[in-house]
């Protein structure tokens, strides 16, 4: 589904990703771990299409298409979803209006008629239940005045609404209490199936107790230096990232 080859990326002449390779198939959950400043969020932003980086080398193939040639909204409509580390506030724009616009633009992209108000509201109710989000969140303006936890839950709610093919969770667990963490994890677990894939970016193994990954990758200094199964996360938890400084064998 997603194939990243030799991806080298810089911002303001500083290289962040240095020849990164990653293969993701349908039905898989990949966790990406690593210390601060190693390029985890950059990777998420690059896949989503944020326009502030210089791609020096490498290719990203997404379902047979060259991802680099697609606009941000086109990528989204092709099923790429990014759960933001810091979701922005959009004052005065209600969640209902925002979501309805997003859903209907997605439908239009795929040549479908827009949802009627009733159909939309019904879908929203279902998804709210699925991700256990309170109704009052969706009555407010997009992220405006939301607590950190509310913002993250709102990201998961949007993910449920948009039903992505490839979802990237960029440190969705940071700053969450244990209840919010459970809500986020349950959301992902209910949504995962054999036709979609997840990239879960996190610092902590804690989230991976709830979302069981198929693969764990360690991103260090712009490269994936180690990949393994879920047990790798536990190892990292015990040893920290320091041991990665030694040349790997």
């Amino acid at each position: 589904m997603l194939s990243i080859k030799n991806l080298t990326v810089s911002i303001e002449n500083k290289q962040i990703l240095k020849g990164l390779n990653l293969e993701i198939n349908k039905g898989e959950v990949h966790a990406i771990m690593g210390p601060n400043g190693t390029g985890k969020s950059t990777l998420a932003n690059i896949i989503a299409g944020k326009n502030i980086y210089t791609i020096e080398e490498g290719t990203i193939d997404y379902m047979g298409k060259n991802l680099m040639e697609m606009e941000v909204d086109e990528r989204a409509n092709e099923g790429i979803f990014l759960s933001f580390q810091y979701p922005v506030e959009i004052p005065g724009v209600s969640m209902v209006n925002f979501m309805r616009t997003a859903i209907n633009e997605q439908r239009q992209y795929h040549g479908k008629d827009p949802l009627s108000a009733a159909e939309f509201l019904q879908k929203m109710e279902e998804k709210k239940k699925l991700v256990e989000i309170h109704s009052k969140l969706t009555n407010r303006s997009v992220n405006e005045g939301f607590s950190g936890g509310e913002k993250k839950k709102n990201e998961i709610f949007q993910m449920a609404m948009l039903e992505p093919v490839l979802a990237i969770l960029d440190e969705t667990d940071s700053g969450l209490d244990i209840d919010a963490l459970r809500v986020v994890a349950n959301g992902v677990n209910k949504l995962r199936n054999e036709n979609n894939a997840f990239i879960v970016i996190t610092h902590y193994q804690r989230l991976l107790d709830y979302i069981i990954p198929d693969f764990v990758h360690v991103l260090f200094e712009g490269k994936i230096v180690k990949s393994g199964g879920k047990e790798l996360a536990l190892e990292l938890e015990q040893k920290g990232y320091e041991w990665l400084n030694q040349p790997s064998k």
Binding site: A48, F98, E105
Partner: peptide, 13 residues
């Protein structure tokens, strides 16, 4: 950032 957020949800500029 607001525009990127909207674009990422599939909403055109």
């Amino acid at each position: 950032d607001q525009l990127f957020y909207c674009n990422q949800r599939g909403i055109s500029t």
